[in-house]
Write a protein that binds this DNA or RNA. Sequence first.
DNA 1: CGCCACTATTGAACGTGTTCAAAAATGGGT
DNA 2: ACCCATTTTTGAACACGTTCAATAGTGGCG
Lengths: 231, 231
Amino acid sequence: MTTVQDTPSATAKKSDATKALILDTALRLFAERGYERTTMRAVAAEAGVSVGNAYYYFDSKEHLVQGFYYRIGDLHVRASQEVLAREQELDARLRGVLHRWLEVAAPYHQFGSQFFKNAADPASPLSPLSPESAPVRDAAIGLLREVVDGSTAKMDPMLRPELPELLWLYQMGIVLYWVHDRSSGCSRTGTLLDSTAPLISRAVNLSRLRVLRPLIQDAIPVVKNLLQPGQ
Amino acid sequence: MTTVQDTPSATAKKSDATKALILDTALRLFAERGYERTTMRAVAAEAGVSVGNAYYYFDSKEHLVQGFYYRIGDLHVRASQEVLAREQELDARLRGVLHRWLEVAAPYHQFGSQFFKNAADPASPLSPLSPESAPVRDAAIGLLREVVDGSTAKMDPMLRPELPELLWLYQMGIVLYWVHDRSSGCSRTGTLLDSTAPLISRAVNLSRLRVLRPLIQDAIPVVKNLLQPGQ
DNA sequence: CGCCACTATTGAACGTGTTCAAAAATGGGT
DNA sequence: ACCCATTTTTGAACACGTTCAATAGTGGCG
């Protein structure tokens, strides 16, 4: 099958007004009641359309969540600019930017922890590695590239171009922890962030050591391969 | 040798015969048709009981999969003994043991990739970090401890006791890649294993370097904290 | 206007996981 | 043997995601 997936700007044939209305309604209900407790019937009723009509615009309930990804990613990039303008050191930039993610995502924590399981399904368009998620993923990696390039950190020059993608993997790990985090205000995730980001910064700094160079050289192509489409 | 009991008989009040029958039937159908395409009605019918009776023994369809964990874990420990007896070097032991996991899990790849999404849900008992999964997790970490302790590898002595849990995290990463792996025979996962295990072995070896010691010292409590129950 | 192809919309119906009140079986105490 | 509490079993009923054939709207063209 070679049909084009409904990325936001790919096929603009369908009425965008109704589609946006349904999406906004869904995200609102998700935030209010959580993912599981929001039924497609409720979304349709609240948006003033029929159930079938919602399915005309969104292939499944999961597809509704794609909009959440775009929203969070956009808010995060915007909220991070201030940090990038202020901080110089890699540690502070990384920690600041990821803290911003926690802040931006905070209102959706309960909602997020309910649907993030779907993101682990490789077949789901919600997988962070899926083609549908590519725009959001690339934006996130681009943000981390700014974190690296705008910093004063010194490192193995071979590592620098690959570091943003490595940091993205790190961010995915933080998000996974956040999803599991039941502490009030997700304080445990914040602590994890504060304790791991300096370690990463120090490890990056150590990458200039001669003894480590062959290891890094061998690891780079592996990482490079890791983020290619699995097929 | 660490083994996993086949049925978590914490509450031994309920008849184990019917429970085992239902579980066996379910696992067989999962392997035959996949997880999603196996209905609870089919499981019940095939096992010769009513739908409600299946729910009397298993709280949900997901709970049926817990048995899969136990089975795989047990088979893996058993299949790994030969490797542990033969190999001496950390790289070979680690690679061999994880390759055994791939072999043991191979028949369930399609099935696995369909239900593993549930494992990422923190609320699900299928989460590898959930209390329900503790026996399987501990057995897996124990196996990796044998991998480490029986090897000739030299490392920072502070690292040694924590290494098995780190390797378990590594194994989770491999499994996650395996779940996504669509290549024939999951050859890509095998390749990833062969390329990353030596890197890990070399990194472990480098842990003895004086310059790395403070970094390792600071990282150990973080890792230790990571695997504690999130509550 | 009349026709036509296409888009948009509807809501009943289907399959599925899950629940629950009720019935059946079990087993110990008298 | 009888009773009664507990465990086990049943299957109809419910809620939800999803599908689909049918219907209504839309716009371009002669």
